[in-house]
């Protein structure tokens, strides 16, 4: 499988990365090089094999349903590029 330039633009948008027109051809080449490297996997017989969901047998622990953290709003927003009081500020999303 290989990708065309429209697909490169589509996955850049899916990944939320702006791509300039002059970069598309180069990216297409790189992505296709990686896709052709992984192509050999399509020949492997995986009939009846379960996909791995946990690398070692372990079960997800449960804990008591109780508040263990909080009241650290100032810490949470401390690194925000734009903030007001204890809120993150973003461009307007609702008219």
């Amino acid at each position: 499988m290989s990708v065309d330039q429209a697909t490169v633009r589509r996955i850049a948008h899916l990944a939320r990365v702006a791509v300039e027109d002059k970069e598309v051809e180069h990216l297409q080449g790189e992505i296709n090089a990686i896709l052709s490297f992984v192509e050999a996997l399509s020949a492997v017989d995986v009939e009846g094999v379960e996909p791995m969901t946990s690398v070692l047998p372990m079960h997800l622990r449960m804990r008591q349903d109780e508040v263990t953290d909080g009241f650290i709003a100032a810490d949470v927003v401390a690194n925000a590029p734009e903030r007001e009081d204890s809120f993150f500020v973003v461009p307007k999303v609702v008219e």
Binding site: V3, A15, P51
Partner: peptide, 25 residues
């Protein structure tokens, strides 16, 4: 970008699920 592609609709089974099966092997 590769990650977004192999997880995207229509390619997820062919790439990601298959790779996780190979990981089991």
């Amino acid at each position: 970008m590769i990650g977004a592609y192999v997880l995207s609709a229509g390619y997820y089974d062919a790439y990601y699920v298959r790779a996780q099966k190979i990981r089991t092997l």
